[in-house]
Simulated scan of single mutants.
Amino acid sequence: MNPDDLQKLVQWRMPFGKYEGRLLADLPGHYLHWFAREGFPDGELGRLMALMREIDHNGLSPLLEPLRHR
């Protein structure tokens, strides 16, 4: 994992779907789990969503809080 990816999670917004416009770091766990079952989008967006799913699944979302205030 690239440390810059964590910063991207609190900067990038979901470009489509039910949660369009929401930060990747703020996507609900059930939504990320659905993508894990059905398939993440191709490219960097999918890679970051998969990372966020792992962070959420392991209860590590609070670790992103300091990055939100940079």
Rank of each mutant, 00 (worst) to 15 (best):
N2C: 05
M14A: 01
S61L: 12
E44S: 11
N58K: 11
W12F: 13
P3F: 02
S61A: 13
E54M: 11
L45Y: 09
L6M: 06
L67Q: 05
R13E: 11
L45A: 09
R22D: 11
F40T: 05
Y19M: 02
V10T: 10
D4H: 12
H57F: 12
L24P: 01
D26A: 10
A36T: 10
G29K: 14
R68V: 03
E65S: 08
G29N: 12
E38S: 14
H30F: 15
L45H: 10
E20H: 09
E38C: 13
R53A: 14
L27K: 00
E65Q: 10
V10G: 00
Q11H: 12
D56H: 13
R22W: 10
D26G: 09
N2R: 14
L6H: 08
G39M: 09
H30P: 09
P15G: 00
H30A: 13
R37I: 10
D4V: 10
P28M: 01
M52H: 08
R68I: 01
D4C: 07
D56P: 05
M14P: 05
P3C: 07
G59P: 03
M52A: 12
D26I: 06
A50Q: 14
L32I: 08
F16E: 13
G21P: 04
G29D: 15
D42K: 15
L51N: 05
L6A: 09
S61Q: 12
A25I: 08
L60Y: 01
R53Y: 14
L24I: 11
D4K: 12
L64M: 08
F16H: 10
M14D: 08
Y19S: 02
E44C: 04
W34C: 05
H69T: 11
L48T: 08
A36D: 15
R37T: 12
W12G: 03
E44Q: 15
E54G: 12
L60R: 12
R68P: 01
G46H: 01
G46F: 06
L63R: 03
Y19Q: 06
A50I: 01
E44R: 13
N58H: 14
G17K: 03
Q11K: 14
P28V: 09
A36I: 07
D42E: 15
R13V: 07
N58P: 03
L23E: 02
D42L: 11
I55R: 04
M52V: 06
P28A: 05
Y31I: 02
G59V: 00
L45M: 11
D26Y: 08
E54K: 14
R68K: 15
V10L: 02
H69E: 11
K18Q: 14
P66M: 06
D4L: 13
N58W: 11
L9P: 07
L45E: 08
L51V: 02
W12N: 00
L60I: 06
G17S: 04
G17P: 04
H33L: 14
P66H: 05
H33Q: 15
W34Q: 14
D5P: 02
F40N: 07
E44P: 07
G43N: 00
P3M: 04
N58I: 02
E65G: 06
R13T: 09
L45D: 10
R47I: 05
E65I: 05
L45S: 04
